[in-house]
């Protein structure tokens, strides 16, 4: 068996419908392209799946064996049969959702899933009625793999596992980019923009603003500007000004340029 290149095409069936897919795609992605809805919380198109939340379980038949797999990480393969809606799948999905409902009762995405699948009771009395984190790890992957800031990570293990900064203290690595908030499926990450700083409340971190060198207004956390400067050295000077001034500045430059052009053509 060779490592999937993603280029090869394979034929498989999902809920009885035949489909052609790239072998590098996951069953979840193929199903979604076909309009078959499989719930998934730890999957994001940019990051892929983590196989962690387990609500995307489906039944497959491969090499003559029928079993349950997590569709967000299971690769499309030639001849694969996938069943996304069997009684077994629904029972398993409900069991997992009821556990998530106990872990994160305040998470809207979990509440919606519970409603859709008719789960009325959490699997146990929730310890934190305000809990929103399901430990899917999307913030960790975003911060480490996409942004490469490395501010948050998993801490402890098992029951004690959390996501957070070391000692839950203010992070020197968080750049306040807010990407984790964008990708979090359960709305667990809270960020508040105040006059003096951007407060990333979930990570206990306050970030001072960068002031626009032109208009003097705050526009981005200074650390984020610094991070961008390092990763985009070419346009570094553009980062000195806020987006509005940048637009205005470009417009002015443009106007100035056209005036100059007009003048030179008159000569």
């Amino acid at each position: 068996m060779s490592q999937d290149s993603g280029e090869k095409l394979v034929k498989l069936t999902i809920d009885g419908r035949e489909v052609q897919a790239r072998s590098g795609d996951t069953v979840l992605e193929v199903a979604r392209q076909m309009g078959i809805e499989i719930p998934a919380l730890c999957y994001h198109p940019v990051l892929g799946g983590a196989g962690a939340c387990r609500v995307c379980m489906v039944e497959i038949v491969a090499w003559g064996r029928r079993r349950m797999v997590a569709s967000c990480v299971y690769p499309a393969r030639e001849g694969l049969e996938v069943y996304t809606n069997t009684q077994k799948v629904l029972t398993a999905r409900r069991a997992v959702i009821s556990m998530l409902l106990a872990k994160a009762p305040a998470a809207k995405a979990v509440q919606e899933l519970a409603e859709r699948y008719g789960v009325t009771e959490p699997a146990y009395e929730p310890k934190d009625p305000q809990g929103r984190c399901i430990l899917c790890g999307q913030c960790v992957r975003t911060c480490n793999e996409l942004i490469k800031a490395g501010a948050v990570y998993f801490t402890y293990r098992g029951q004690e596992r959390k996501v957070g900064t070391p000692y839950d203290a203010e992070s020197a690595q968080c750049i306040g980019c807010g990407a984790c908030q964008n990708l979090c499926p359960t709305g667990n990450i809270r960020i508040r923009d105040k006059a003096e700083c951007r407060a990333v409340l979930t990570w206990n971190t306050d970030l001072a603003w960068q002031m626009c060198s032109r208009c003097g207004q705050r526009y981005l956390p200074a650390r984020l500007v610094e991070h961008l400067r390092k990763s985009l050295p070419a346009g570094a000077e553009l980062l000195e000004v806020c987006p509005r001034c940048r637009r205005e500045g470009t417009a002015e430059d443009f106007a100035r340029a056209s005036v100059t052009a007009e003048q030179s053509s008159k000569l």
Partner: peptide, 14 residues
């Protein structure tokens, strides 16, 4: 348990 997947983390505790 490492705590990564829901059923093992929550299920064993229940």
């Amino acid at each position: 348990a490492c705590g990564k997947c829901t059923p093992c983390r929550e299920g064993t505790k229940i």
